[in-house]
């Protein structure tokens, strides 16, 4: 697992990004929709933090909130949103925009639609370069070709003239990665960058993101619903359920002893763990409607550990031994299991 290789300096450096008590509510025709509720997390320079959760748990909303790309229907509140020592909420729109693409960049889930369909790949990269750097187009073109080459795209000097539809899905995602990393951003947000790709390409793209991020010293907020990908990429993990953070821990701790039944469930759908005979708890049911949350623990209708207390009393995200937190009344789970048995 990746965290083993992280130098100590990373663990003690001040955070690059701090999110404190972030909530996002959408105004919709059928009333307010609380997509995120009280999220706190931080990323240190060079670190990779994975955000996991089922579809609809608020992962994309979190990444858009950090990028400052939420739609106008979204209402954001946070007691802190600090990037590189600067308060993102207090920033002018202009300053915030200057950060985007230069200091913080994003890769999206759908490479097939994330590129402008009527603009050549090269022109899209050149635009990304020239938005933040005043260099002549020919020079920018050379840089673009270089950046494409660094992502392993064959004959990049030809690809710059291609339109997106002339490239494969994997190629497009490489081009998008090249574009996102062109200014060596300090923070990269990757929102399910491999979900739309073939399994064989997935591994290559994961390797590429990890290698390029390491070479550039880029911190990564890696968003996925796939625990296998988390194991591949993450130093630390935050587990989201229905807009709330239910567990956060280092990747090694999380895989060794998950402290939230939902995390257990997510791990249960990982084939390797099943073969090892680890707890297999496929999560029954679906994510509840965010507008009509069940009282008590939001997970209780689906939780195999739930009892009467869970149905009425909402668990806080509380610290456990080691540098980790869980929002379950019955964490640490192992002790609970022993006393209940």
């Amino acid at each position: 697992m990746k965290h083993m290789t992280l130098p100590d300096s990373v663990m003690t450096a001040p955070p690059l990004l701090t999110v404190e008590n972030l909530s996002v509510t959408f105004r919709t025709d059928s009333g307010p929709l609380p997509a995120l509720d009280g999220i706190s997390l931080s990323i240190r320079p060079g670190e990779t933090v994975a955000v996991v959760g089922e579809s609809g748990s608020g992962k994309s909303v979190l990444s858009l909130a950090v990028m400052g790309l939420l739609p106008p229907t979204a209402e954001l509140t946070a007691s802190g949103l600090i990037f590189d020592g600067e308060d993102l909420q207090a920033m002018s729109k202009r300053t915030r925009r200057d950060l985007r693409g230069r200091d913080m960049a994003m890769i999206f889930q759908e490479p097939s639609t994330a590129l402008n369909p009527v603009q050549r790949i090269g022109d899209q990269l050149i635009e990304a370069i020239r938005l933040h750097e005043d260099i002549p187009t020919p020079k920018a073109r050379a840089r673009a070709i270089e950046a494409l080459a660094a992502t392993g795209i064959p004959s990049p000097e030809l690809r710059v003239r291609a339109y997106p539809h002339e490239l494969s899905g994997g190629m497009r995602q490489r081009a998008l990665i090249a574009m996102a990393l062109i200014h060596r951003p300090r923070l990269l947000i990757a929102d399910e960058p491999t979900t739309a790709l073939d399994v064989t390409v997935q591994a290559q793209i994961l390797d590429l993101i990890r290698d390029l991020a390491r070479d550039n010293g880029t911190a990564t907020l890696f968003i996925t619903h796939d625990m296998g990908v988390v194991a591949e990429m993450a130093d630390r993990v935050a587990v989201l359920y229905a807009g709330r953070m239910v567990e956060t821990a280092s990747a090694s701790d999380l895989f060794e002893s998950p402290e939230h039944p939902y995390t257990l469930g997510l791990l249960g759908s990982m084939p390797q763990l099943n073969q090892r005979g680890a707890a297999m708890l496929p999560i029954a049911g679906t994510v509840p409607d965010l507008r009509q949350m069940p009282p008590g623990c939001h997970f209780h209708p689906r939780c195999p550990f739930a009892d009467h207390r869970c149905a009425t009393q909402r668990p806080d995200l509380r610290p456990l031994a080691g540098n980790r937190r869980s929002a379950c009344h019955y964490a640490p789970l192992l002790e609970t299991l022993e006393t209940r048995a």
Partner: peptide
Amino acid sequence: ADHVRTARAKGAS
């Protein structure tokens, strides 16, 4: 559209 969001993420005005 997705690609418009990409343009915003690049820092375009």
